Simulated assay, not measured.
Amino acid sequence: MKGAGGADGLRRRKACKRNVKREARKEWAVLRKELDELAEQTGRGDRREIGEMKQALRRLSRKTERLPLGKRDAFRTQEEELLKLAAAHPGRVLPFYVVDPRRPGNWLHGPDETIDVSPMTDRLVPELGGKGGFYGFKLYCPNGYSPTDPALMALYEYCERHGAPLTAHCSGGGFASFSPSITVHGHVYRNGEVVPHDGVLEFRHYRLTDKLRVKEKAELLNHPRLWEKVMEAFPRLRLNLAHFGCQDEGMEWTELIYGMMEKFPGLHTDLSCITETAKLREMREYVLKAPEQVRRKFLFGSDFYLNLLFLDGMKEYMENFRNTFTEQERQELMTANPSEFLGLS
């Protein structure tokens, strides 16, 4: 999961997969125990449903045990497939390269604490100073790192200078690491403040069944105030905070991001994975009240197949969007604004 190269890379991949298997066995055991306890407390109909869940769990655990420890690097395979797809559809498929400061081989650290980001930036298209086929970078901080990690700050400096766009997940939901502790460099958001952190970060919530697992890591590692610190250092960084900070309760993150869009020239947001018509209408109110320079920074987004967790299909998603925004508004969100964000206009 953290990448590799050569014999050392193969050893790392094998070790990583062994760790995945070991941790998965622990989680399966906890889940089985929870399901057994739940079955004892419920009626016959519910027990039947729990039995089906246990069967699904057994199938998933068997798949984990069959996880091969061979040479295949799935991350590199996906990278190659994306580039093939982009080459087959020039100008229509514009892939972003996923960034994780913990991934070995993507950063070169000098003896004087300098950080060389060329292994990453070389993957960008020549128009952005690279040698590859990617049009920007994607970040997902709740997976276990801070937006202000020193390696990322070095990358932001390059991206601001060359106009390379970045998209970062920024909502109260989504995915998050299952680790009970992670080594984090940079800053975290704790008790209403952005505070420096350089070392092990412990989590109270990390199990698969813990409903607060994602929320805790989102607050600590992905709060808009952390991104505000990034934008204060790089105000013209072309950054898209995806999902407009949507949360299950309240509008705190959305309000913060909107205020930051007024303040920082490079900050954008998108409306991806906002599936409910009522929520889309709330988002439209922000678009309509925004001054022109801010309105141009709202982007359409889909999150594609993840929407299928909430809707019957993408047709329903698009219909909700069409029924909420006018044709002129859709043209701005889907064509004009994204073109400007990507540097294509």
Rank of each mutant, 00 (worst) to 15 (best):
A164H: 02
E252A: 12
V125C: 01
D100G: 09
R161T: 14
G163M: 07
P235R: 11
A86Q: 02
R236G: 14
K263E: 08
P126R: 13
Y286C: 03
T275V: 12
S146G: 04
K2R: 14
G173P: 05
F264E: 07
R72A: 02
N240R: 03
A15E: 06
K84A: 15
L201W: 12
E327F: 03
E127R: 10
E219Y: 03
F321M: 00
L220R: 08
C141F: 15
F244V: 05
E27M: 11
E249Q: 02
M261C: 09
N307S: 09
E327K: 01
A176Q: 07
E232Q: 13
R32N: 09
Q293E: 09
C16M: 11
P104M: 04
A151M: 11
E332L: 05
L342N: 04
A242L: 01
E276C: 00
L35I: 05
M53P: 12
T183W: 15
E285W: 00
P147V: 01
V117G: 09
L212D: 01
K215Y: 09
L241P: 05
M334C: 14
F300C: 02
C141R: 02
K21I: 07
H205I: 00
E228L: 05
L83S: 14
E202C: 07
E327V: 06
E160G: 14
S61Y: 00
L124I: 08
Q78N: 11
L82F: 14
L309N: 06
P142W: 04
P265I: 06
E160T: 13
L342Y: 10
Y189D: 07
L212W: 06
A164T: 04
Q328E: 12
F175T: 14
G51E: 03
N222E: 04
L226Y: 01
F178T: 03
L299H: 09
E216C: 00
R225G: 08
L239V: 06
L108T: 11
G133D: 03
G130T: 13
C273T: 04
F304K: 13
R236V: 11
T209M: 11
R123W: 00
E65F: 01
N106H: 10
C16W: 15
G301E: 04
E157M: 10
M120E: 15
L212C: 11
K71V: 02
P142G: 10
G133S: 12
Y97A: 09
C16A: 14
R225E: 13
R225K: 09
G266K: 02
Y206W: 15
E49H: 14
V93G: 14
P235Q: 15
Y156H: 07
C246Y: 03
Y189E: 00
W253Y: 03
A164E: 01
S345Q: 07
G130L: 10
V98H: 08
G192F: 05
H162F: 12
R59H: 03
M334Y: 12
F178L: 13
L239W: 09
Y97E: 13
L108W: 08
D303L: 05
R59Q: 11
